[in-house]
Design a protein around this nucleic acid. Structure first.
Lengths: 254, 254
DNA sequence: CCTGAGAAGTGGTCTATGCCACTTTCTACC
DNA sequence: GGTAGAAAGTGGCATAGACCACTTCTCAGG
């Protein structure tokens, strides 16, 4: 039916207005006051407030009040992620290209790839799926100077490093970081999970045998479908295996 | 300061039991049914369910039901190889014991340690700090049958596996999983971060040379201070190193 | 046999209300 | 004047109930 506007959202938007127009640390009206002002019940107000507390925009203090949070900068630091080198899991992988272009690196990517912000790169954003189910978002950046003739098809290929080798690039090592994060609105939408759902943020910087940065990948993996499993041998040999495994699951109810 | 047990938490714990004992994809009882079973109101049930949905353990489907989302059963899969270390970071580690006792394993822990829920275990919960700053919460469980004379001091010891060996337990290997999560209220409070902040959930199950499960460790690492960094060698040598590094930066919650 | 309408069951939203716990403020007592 | 205690205001927890939206199953009608 029509876009039945939820009261909770109306209240939330009202609160967002308050947050925008009030300095950090300023108190917002008491819950019971908001009820009257907006003609809704207290649980509805509480629900809206809770949402904003969860996203870090408001801070509640028992017995004192609710206040505009001080730092929204927390979200800023999260910039890049990388996909696991061999993120294989049972199931059939596929991917859907969301965006691809040859563009200037920009400040952020340029810094990681040791390029000037104006240097051109191959860029591709894609949604990776397992058995048709969204699994991860992957953003791949390759300096155009490294492989000028690289095609979209090359980048889409499952065996990307093979293609790179064909272009004369010999990958030697990669540094990868993994950290926990939560999905933002667009990520949540693309991955089909709720906003603020736990996720893994991978970031990988790959270097070739000549020491050049050849790719920068960052990706967001669904936290409800992935875990990293490692088998540790504490004995003589410090060798162990590390896998990224798909959690078997919830997509197809038998 | 009596530990007034919140109904919401009671319901949540009940749901956690269900999640542990049911396969992924299995439906949990309808909300109205849970109300009757646990003698609480529906908003209370919904609140508890919502918490678990937010952390990715349950999935709600309008008109169909609520289902177990996590898949715990994961095997097979070998992709990359590398060595992974236990969480460590530069800086001075210290720890503060929050709780310790000799208690029945309970359903959840018992299942992981292959024990009956009534079997006794050594349990210790501690806050781990780096340079005096809260870094992680660690919950350690060791079957009493494995090391009956284990003391608190043994478990507090930095060289825990040495102590185990003195008790005749020879650790051979461990399986560790890492997944993203978000902090709940008590975790947030203890770690000094906002609720629902990104965090890493480590789970480690250690086995001795006789195949017995000797410890189950469950820990929550602050997502704003930790990342996992691995150096991958994609060439001939399938060896790589993995470290958990403290992120440099602010520790200010606001 | 197939189809479609309805019933039943599920989660989704919202209301109205009560009491508790914590914080701050003000007041009355010493 | 100083201090203990009451009062008021705040968020926190929980209840009971109503109605809506979506899904699935059943069964009567074609």
């Amino acid at each position: 039916m029509g876009e039945a506007i939820l009261k909770r959202e109306r209240v939330r938007d009202h609160l967002l207005e308050l947050i925008e127009t009030h300095p950090a640390g300023a108190p917002i009206p008491a819950e019971r006051v908001l009820c009257q002002q907006l003609s809704v019940s207290r649980p509805t107000v509480r629900s809206a407030v809770e949402e904003l507390v969860n996203t870090g925009l408001l801070v509640r203090q028992h017995g004192r009040g609710t206040f505009v949070a001080r730092a929204k900068i927390t979200q800023e630091m999260v910039s890049g992620t990388g996909s696991m080198s061999l993120p294989q899991a049972s199931g059939t992988w596929s991917s859907r290209v969301l965006e691809h272009a040859r563009i200037p690196a920009g400040a952020r990517v340029g810094r990681r790839l040791h390029l000037s912000p104006a240097a051109e790169i191959h860029y591709i954003a894609r949604l990776r799926l397992v058995d048709g189910e969204p699994m991860a978002l992957e953003y791949l950046h390759v300096p155009a100077a490294v492989a000028p003739s690289l095609t979209l098809h090359d980048m889409e290929s499952g065996d990307f490093y093979e293609r790179l080798r064909e272009h004369g690039v010999h990958v030697s090592e990669a540094v990868q970081s993994i950290e926990p994060t939560v999905t933002n609105e667009s990520e949540a939408s693309l991955l089909g999970v709720p906003e603020l759902a736990p996720a893994l943020l991978f970031e990988r910087l790959t270097t070739d045998s000549e020491g050049r940065q050849v790719e920068y990948v960052h990706s967001i993996y669904r936290g409800d479908r992935y875990r990293i499993v490692s088998k540790l041998t504490l004995g003589d040999q410090p060798r162990s295996t590390v896998d990224v495994q798909a959690k078997i699951g919830n997509s197809n109810p038998f």
